[in-house]
Design a protein around this nucleic acid. Structure first.
Lengths: 102, 102
DNA sequence: TTACTATTTGAATAGTTATTCAAATACATG
DNA sequence: CATGTATTTGAATAACTATTCAAATAGTAA
């Protein structure tokens, strides 16, 4: 089993993989993936608009974008009472965007 | 809100997005992502080997590959008692592989 | 056939995550 | 400051998913 020594080390040391799994997990939910899809098509969309477009509640959207925010897939911008979200450009969202447009 | 009519239709009709979310969800788990990572590096690996490399039980691996199998991310090949799994080449696993190697 | 190895399966439980709803915050306007 | 609009938050519960373990299956070899 000496053959697998290197990869075994890699798997256990790489916290990248854990981070990756979290990112995949967060877009592994229909609501959040739809939000990402939406933000792949529009530069920024408000919480209220998202709720209307996705046919869901403001609360669901707010909880959802919070998770996307935590994993730095989106950023927020507040303009008076309205909060707009936009996709952050990074390796993960680039991959996601490319895959969605494919 | 006429501006969003098209995308709203798209979001509700596309079952691709649902399928996508499932695929992301399945690699949104550390064990399963590790298995994919492993299979990105080796053409095929048996259940027993995976369990040893990932420091987990045979049962966990078997349950995990079953999910990967269900979403057609891997294929199985049986050789006497031993079952080998290999990554299936499709759009999703290609994206995954590219992203992992980045 | 018995014993052994490799893997799968299913059911129970433990753990995690989503949904819901009411209350809280933040900002704008009369 | 009271009212209205937009969003966030937190807590309860509902729904889902992972883990564990024992039993089952399938193939091999004595």
């Amino acid at each position: 089993m000496i053959k697998y020594l290197q990869i075994k080390k890699e798997l256990n040391s790489k916290k990248d993989l854990l981070e990756c799994a979290k990112q995949f997990g967060v877009v592994g939910d229909t609501t959040r993936l739809k939000i990402c899809y939406l933000l792949c098509h529009y530069p920024e969309v408000s919480v209220g608009e998202m709720a209307e477009i996705l046919d869901t509640s403001i609360s669901v959207v707010s909880h959802s974008v919070k998770k996307l925010l935590e994993l730095q897939l989106v950023k927020r911008r507040k303009e008076s009472q309205t909060v707009y979200y936009a996709l952050i450009r990074n390796d993960f969202t680039k991959t996601l965007k490319d895959f969605i447009y494919e």
